[in-house]
């Protein structure tokens, strides 16, 4: 019989995250990023992992209502905190007005940037219900999109904030 390997020294810790209103307890190592914990441990894969470098915004989530990059956030630093991900934007089957506006304006193509965009824009609208185009751009400048050319996304935020933009698609 082979010898049992020595148990490694562990620096893991148990943390609790309140994600979209539900508490999850997970055991994480210091090196685990929030995006890994959300996607791999909690199973919420709506948050996308685009670059791991903090440069694309696809992994944006709301941490205590502020948009942050989950690929550059230590999960162990988030113990006890509130998180919102794309899975938490709709109430049951009822889409948020912003989600509906993304559909109506054709602001979604491949969809990979969409969760991050939605969360950045949600944070904006919760703080600034009627943002100007400049404010929208400033809020979304950290979210890259390669498909849409952004104009439809700006239109979607304007539609969601009831600023005279009507649906492009039926």
């Amino acid at each position: 019989m082979t010898e049992t390997p020595k148990r490694p020294k562990s620096n893991s810790r148990l943390i609790a995250l309140c994600v979209n209103g539900e508490w999850h307890e997970v055991t994480v190592k210091p090196r685990h990023m929030l995006v890994e914990v959300l996607r791999e441990m909690i199973g919420l894969t709506g948050t996308k992992d685009g670059c791991e470098q903090g440069t694309c915004g696809a992994c944006t989530v709301l941490l205590d209502e502020r948009p942050v990059l989950s690929c550059m956030t230590l999960a162990a630093d988030c113990d006890g905190r509130q998180l919102r991900t794309v899975e938490g934007l709709a109430e049951g089957e009822k889409l948020s007005v912003l989600q509906q506006a993304f559909l109506d304006q054709g602001a979604v193509q491949c969809g990979f940037c969409t969760p991050g965009m939605l969360l950045s824009a949600t944070a904006l609208l919760e703080r600034t219900p009627k943002p100007t185009t400049d404010e929208i751009k400033k809020a979304l400048e950290g979210n890259l999109c390669r498909c849409t050319g952004y104009n439809a996304i700006v239109a979607a935020v304007l539609q969601a904030s009831d600023q005279g933009v009507t649906p492009l698609m039926k």
Partner: peptide, 12 residues
Amino acid sequence: AHRVAGNQIRQM
């Protein structure tokens, strides 16, 4: 501060 990176980075 307004000119730093993107919004998420400024939030963090």
